[in-house]
Nucleic acid binder design. Sequence first.
DNA 1: AGGCTGATGTCAGCAACTGCCATCAATCTA
DNA 2: TAGATTGATGGCAGTTGCTGACATCAGCCT
Lengths: 188, 188
Amino acid sequence: MGRWEPDSRGRLQEAALSLYAERGFDQTTAAQIAERAGVTERTFFRHFADKREVLFGGADILQERILTGVNDAPKADGPFDAVARGLDAASEMLGESRRDLALLRQTVIASNPELRERELAKLATYAAAVAAALRQRGVNELQATLAAQVGMTVFLVAFNQWAEGGDGQDLTLIMRTSFAELRALAVG
Amino acid sequence: MGRWEPDSRGRLQEAALSLYAERGFDQTTAAQIAERAGVTERTFFRHFADKREVLFGGADILQERILTGVNDAPKADGPFDAVARGLDAASEMLGESRRDLALLRQTVIASNPELRERELAKLATYAAAVAAALRQRGVNELQATLAAQVGMTVFLVAFNQWAEGGDGQDLTLIMRTSFAELRALAVG
DNA sequence: AGGCTGATGTCAGCAACTGCCATCAATCTA
DNA sequence: TAGATTGATGGCAGTTGCTGACATCAGCCT
């Protein structure tokens, strides 16, 4: 057995989520999170760049999934269709996670401006990566940026809808529906 | 004459922009900004909620302009057209500002993640307000959100293009071109 | 057995931000 | 015109986010 309990990172994420939910983000200090996780404050900041980042631990993996989806799209697919494949891949991954935890997390994020800010930043990072992937496929700069950004908007709207909704909802379906509605919108 | 030089807020904005440009955002302390502006650090935080906010002083006014544009759009306009009117109003206002200052500001923002985060947050605020205005016009929730978000993406892309471009560029024209390209994209 | 590595602890310190009270020119009011 | 009021600022103490530097020690490698 190690000198310390394993998975301190995971414990910090759990401790942070529960404390943010209980007392609010502002009223929670990094030291309190660390204490609940059984480590020191310094260790918290070794694992997470700042207090907000602890809620976005899976962002890297999710981005990879999205990119894989986009890159695996058939060559015939236009930019929007390729982005839609990325969202399919994302919802596949997220659909497996516990909806109650996702909802709790979204509630916490929604209730604090700094956290909302960070969430937007994450989405913007995905969008930038997706746009780069689209350009790789030969899409021009502007179209790539717009398609990627629209995709992230659909993603955010659909994900929140899914987290708030009842059981049995299919995240993939929600995303596809939203996407279809956008297309109708642009034409009309 | 007052007890102090007038317009301390404006002096703080100028001082911050120049210091951020000279030494970088991270390497600049609030105390340094205050000193250059001839006030104390405490006064800085009375005028601006945090170190980033000082670069976004005109955001409220801009948002009002955009909303006015959207609300003044003919009833016959669809969501996209209405958003386009909002962007026209915004570019009218921004087109009058000094392009060199806008470029300096954008350069500073682009070189720091925290500032980019804040910029996205501002755009999201505009988007939420525009979406609300669209709903007022009878547009449904999802379409309103998407149209507003797309508008903000066009805005950001076009504004950066304008700031970087040479003299004689028309911000309004750039925005309209970008918008047209999006429509073509969604259809194809 | 001995050295290396990686995760953690410990501690000092800076800078962002806040609350509280004092100050005093301008302005209002009786 | 004397006095109260207001509003913007200064001054200062305190909390918290976050960082750098160094120490510790279990597990692994040789």
